[in-house]
Design a protein around this nucleic acid. Structure first.
Lengths: 340, 340
DNA sequence: CTGAAAGCGCTAACAT
DNA sequence: ATGTTAGCGCTTTCAG
């Protein structure tokens, strides 16, 4: 409960001097600075955040709207959040956590001047929040790329966004599988609910995968997968209906272990029958750490989750300081061959 | 950027009247109230959070320190966080997200009067933060139970805490296995790092499991498990060294599928040898949703993660309003027999 | 039942 | 290089 006045008194200076030594916004003689800093330390003084923000019109807080549903992608969400928080902290910012199901959380936080900027995760291709966002009094960065925004489109009035380039990842995987000689490939992806909502990343991944398959003249199909062991049924059904599908891109954290084991089950069954003829290829799209020990995977496309958070937060902090920033920041996918 | 003065002017009343209609702290005539509310709606007025908090000395924000590491327990952490945020929102509070690796985040947030209260997750048995906490200018609730605190101990000056009763869960599981006739039981638990840190829940779970095993005259051993497929090795090694261990309590989200499949592998191998003689029992300790589809599990002890968050937040909000609250709130475990 | 006015603790002109 | 002071937008006495 010590105020700037207490510090000023103890240091024998005016309160503005104290303020200025803290902000560095004007030159202070070494001697006074020293005395003030001493007083601050002695009193363990902490400026009152609300007072500061009322006077300066800066809160040093950013809002982050995250999907706190359980199920898919928890690891990725958590790492992105961690990246955001870390980056914010490095810039002396704190993070206010909002959830996707808190309808007007964004408007509330921004309207009450509780935050200097907003980060929105879990974007959908045709996201209804987009309209609202542009009318908010603070800058916003999306983590995800809504449908209306295409890299290269005339960038006026677009909301800034940052994300992993799922479309490129889909293409990369399809090309890799085609290169390996697979003629029929399948994307085992996000749960139906995610697809139905047109969650941005699922749409983009599918689009890239389909486009590259077509381009290479191979047949690519897309199959939503539920979380947990049920995912194995999708594999079973698929391979029963279309036994000649040999290339797979799997992208579903919660189903990953079940997908790989179901696939390897089929592989060994098949090679037991006619040895050597089965040559299944599996590309996993997930955080590298998660894929590291999964058996049966031929290649991994890493989702650098924390980096996504870092990059988004960095972009937002630039906007907050009214600096320029990329309109669409896509993180390029990288495919790593797994050696067993 | 509309202020309370704008509203007052439009409604033809004084500033204080506007303030009072919003707070309900004094009786207002129906007519004035109506006009003011109309003006508020017309102008889409939002009180400035900092101004309000500077004047009222309340921020309507609580701080939540969460472990954003990836790996163990991500689902549980996320659900707890979701419970906290939801509960806070229902009471018109927002949540400031701090991370465990942000050393003085708690002191900073509290010292700068950025929050009205603090929620601390990821407590260790002998947590160094405890000393600091009691000196902070805001009330605090721990999610987890540090070693010094025992239910029933003289409750002065203790920090309030809320958690799932892991000790009781350990006991419950051991008793269940003993009831089923298992004479040697094993706890396949958290990774080594968590145990080494003396994370509160791991300590308590092990303590309860060991105590109840002793009480029932059966042999109980405890085995940390790494996340991912390596967890299977722990099972293999254990069963090679001690083939007569037949009862298992498994508690490690990230290893769960690998543990169950490793165990069932051994089970079927054994029963192939001498049919009928093998009678393995597995109790899973994890969110019920996660265990729902896992094969080979005989019983589940649910970790009601969201409820933990809800209860902790509720306790904190009571403290913030200077109401009384439980010193130690332990959520009782419940064992459910799984029917396949 | 309603107004006027004194702060809340700080920043940023405006002085010197 | 430092001090003085007018607000920032709101809550809450104090005064009708």
């Amino acid at each position: 409960v010590t105020t700037i006045a207490d510090v000023a008194q103890r240091a024998g200076v005016s309160i503005s001097t104290v303020s200025y030594v803290m902000s560095g916004k004007r030159t202070i003689s070494a001697r006074t600075r020293e005395r003030v800093e001493q007083a601050i330390a002695d009193l363990a003084y902490r400026p009152h955040a609300s007072a500061r923000s009322l006077a300066s019109r800066m809160t040093f807080v950013i809002g982050l709207q995250a999907p706190l549903r359980t199920g898919v992608d928890v690891n990725v969400v958590m790492e992105i959040v961690a990246g955001v928080v870390r980056t914010a902290r490095d810039a002396e910012y704190d993070v206010l956590l909002l959830t996707s199901d808190d309808g007007d959380g964004l408007a509330r936080a921004a309207g009450a001047s509780r935050v200097d900027g907003l980060l929105v995760m879990d974007v959908e291709s045709d996201d209804p929040r987009l309209a609202t966002l542009s009318s908010l009094p603070v800058p916003t960065v999306l983590i995800g790329v809504p449908g209306e925004i295409r890299p290269g489109a005339d960038a006026k009035s677009q909301v800034a966004c940052v994300d992993f380039d799922f479309e490129a990842a889909g293409r990369l995987a399809a090309h890799h599988l085609a290169d390996r000689g697979h003629r029929r490939v399948a994307l085992l992806g996000a749960p139906q609910s995610v697809v139905t909502r047109h969650t941005s990343f699922a749409d983009r991944l599918g689009r890239g995968f389909a486009a590259a398959s077509a381009e290479r003249g191979i047949v690519g199909s897309i199959h939503p997968c539920p979380a947990g062991p049920e995912a194995a049924h999708v594999v079973d059904d698929l391979l029963r209906a279309e036994p000649d599908v040999t290339g797979f891109l799997i992208h579903n954290e919660a189903a990953m272990p079940h997908l790989t084991s179901a696939l390897s089950r089929h592989t060994s069954a098949a090679s037991a029958g006619e040895a050597g003829s089965t040559d299944v290829g599996i590309v996993a799209l997930c955080p590298a750490a998660l894929a590291a020990h999964l058996p049966g995977i031929d290649a991994v496309i890493d989702i650098p989750a924390e980096q996504i958070g870092t990059r988004a937060a960095t972009a937002l902090l630039r906007l907050v300081s009214s600096e320029e920033t990329e309109q669409v920041g896509l993180i390029e996918p990288q495919l790593t061959i797994t050696t067993h």
